[in-house]
Design a protein around this nucleic acid. Sequence first.
RNA 1: GUGGGUAUAGCGUAGUUGGUUAACGCGUCAGAUUGUGGUUCUGAAGAGCGUCGGUUCGAGUCCGACUACCCACCCCA
Length: 449
Amino acid sequence: MILKRPKGTQDITPGVINRWRTVETAASGLAEQFGFREIRTPVFEETGLYVRSVGDTSDVVTKEMYTVSSKGDDAFTLRPEGTAGVIRALLENGILNEGFPQKVYYIIPCYRHEKPQAGRFREFRQFGVEMAGSASPYADAEIILLAASVLDACGLENVELHLNSIGCPECRAEYRKALKSYFEPHIGEMCDTCRDRLEKNPMRLLDCKSPVCKEIAKNAPVITDYLCGGCREHFEKLKSILDGYEIKYTVDPRIVRGLDYYTRTVFEFISNDIGAQGTVCGGGRYDGLISELGGQPTPALGFGMGLERLILCMEAAGVEFDPPKTPDLYIAPMGERAQEKAALLCDAVRRAGYAAEFDLIGRGIKPQMRYADKVGAKFVCVLGDNELDSGEAKLKNMKTGEETPVRLEDFISAFNSLLLNEMFGSNFSEEFGSILNDLPAEDTAPNNE
RNA sequence: GUGGGUAUAGCGUAGUUGGUUAACGCGUCAGAUUGUGGUUCUGAAGAGCGUCGGUUCGAGUCCGACUACCCACCCCA
């Protein structure tokens, strides 16, 4: 009986790992271009961290956390999101004392006990960034631009940016009052959860999908009419910066976000191609979080991008992923004596910086050729008694079928020139080979990245 | 937590109104005269039809329960 993986998790098998490499290199590369440095924090944190940051009434905290007790000590929770742990780490390591702004990014697995569905998992991976120390709308624009750049680099064009401002605690209080007085007369007609929301979190009333509530919410007051002067100015400036970047967005007053720490700017990048869970990236500003977690009051903001959703979008759009790495050379030994030689030769080729394989299961020549073809080997070298006795073998170019004789004693330099010719043109090694041969082998080999 | 759908070899599927040794494609392995791949041809291995229990002379095909997965609500990445 084969055991099954836990519900809501997935295996990322070798056959699809290149999809992940594609998005991870795009994300980390762009983040670093924007001046974000990578940070890595524990997968579990003290439960209280999430209760204080994400919010003790949020769905994430009240019903989705994987909390474990550790030998009767404190309760720990598998991180349901990245921001809280990263801010904790920035505080704990004094990084916020090193000057502003601080900009970090991460690629991490997160855990939420939800019922799995298309684009929703119990273990999912996020690319996230956090920036601390800037209250400027240029900072908001900067992270939105970064997110848009990553989506763009992944070949996605049908992902829409939805933007909103939910104000600061002051103007939000005004807005809540307005919402309450608007909904109160209608509350009898609305669904149970909404009745509950009226007191606890009236902003969620706008989000309800039930037709009746939706209809009622249609004419509800919008937050943008209740923003205080500072918040309004911030939002207007952000929009004009985005216009300058020619980033398209729609102002969507219904975006309120389920994590309690957000203030002012909130945004989502939404796709229509991957089912009901279309939010590929969500983020915003959280100016109150750092002080909430015990630091000096410091403006901050960030976003999280769901990598499996990102990959789903790319698959739906037919985007080509970076191809997997293939062997530069496959050595096909025939017989015991040849296998010994093949093993040593293979080792030498790898030390020269190339990817190489040889037969490990004693197959005949034909299956070996098939294997070499299947794994996409660029060259094959057949090694049998003839080659061992004469000291000369052939390197077969699998694309052209062309065979080049090589002396086994200077196999590496011959292979080097062959590959360089392949990459840069037919006479490359004749013109530059002598220079390259004087260099250490490692420096002349392509690094295959 | 609520609702709907599906469940046949490693993967993707076919299995008519229940009836002989469960079929096909891909993949895997092996051959097609002697040491060379990608095409083609031939052959082989591999499931007893999610589990349990019913109905029946007889069930992959009908009924029930359970389980798993998928999708949707909710919420979010």
